[in-house]
Design a protein around this nucleic acid. Structure first.
Lengths: 113, 113
DNA sequence: CAAAGATACATAAGAAAATTATGTATTTGA
DNA sequence: TCAAATACATAATTTTCTTATGTATCTTTG
């Protein structure tokens, strides 16, 4: 079972930031594979969604990049900047908080019947 | 603190369906107020988001409507159809499942210091 | 050794879903 | 009486993702 894509909306940036916080530096393709692994294939980040997100994080100054060559193939590593680290803490705790709220909302039992 | 709007994206339909499951019938404005109450003002559904969502649920056959007049003012009540009840169960359990996965993702600790 | 599949980047067109703004109208409360 | 709350609705814009496409290299397998 794969989560309907609408659920991933709004959480992608947070997922990426958190992975970078946990791993110091990662490249795009690696991120897609790691998320796939960690979620047992239930969340699959597409490249069309990921790369624009990474570029946005970079232009917001939340990540820095370094390019490496593996043979002739280019690989672009992303790392959190200091402000990226702060942003990650904010985003992760906001999402955790939000999930508590949602859990509460979804647990409410009917008054009627 | 109000959750950043991107977090609400993708969960709105599920929230609305779940509220209708718990309350048999509700009208739009009531839904916005109920969500505000239940979340201590942290989730505020705007009318521009809610009404199109309700109309979509209706055209998908997930809810039925009945119009009532309170004085001269119109009030449009929404109720779940049988297929809406099934859909609600699906959506709620998918979201609950998704939140477990996200919780796991966000809890992962750094390997590197 | 050729071909398929995996690795690795990127961007553009289109779709989906929300935000923001606007509009109408009634009712309530200060 | 006048502002705020109640109650609906829609349109323009923005944001964000999907889908499609493009390029290129490396690895595995028949």
């Amino acid at each position: 079972m794969i989560y309907s894509s609408e659920l991933i909306k709004g959480t992608l940036k947070t997922i990426v930031l958190k992975l970078l916080a946990d791993n110091k530096k990662m490249y795009g393709y690696e991120i897609t594979q790691r998320v796939k692994e960690l979620t047992f294939d239930r969340i699959q980040i597409t490249e069309g969604a990921l790369y624009p997100t990474l570029h946005a994080l970079e232009s917001d100054g939340l990540v820095t990049t370094e390019t490496e060559y593996i043979g002739k193939r280019v690989r672009k590593y992303y790392s959190l900047s200091p402000s990226g680290k702060n942003k990650t803490k904010e985003k992760v705790s906001e999402l955790a908080d939000f999930m508590e709220t949602m859990k509460f909302l979804l647990d409410i039992k009917p008054k009627t019947a």
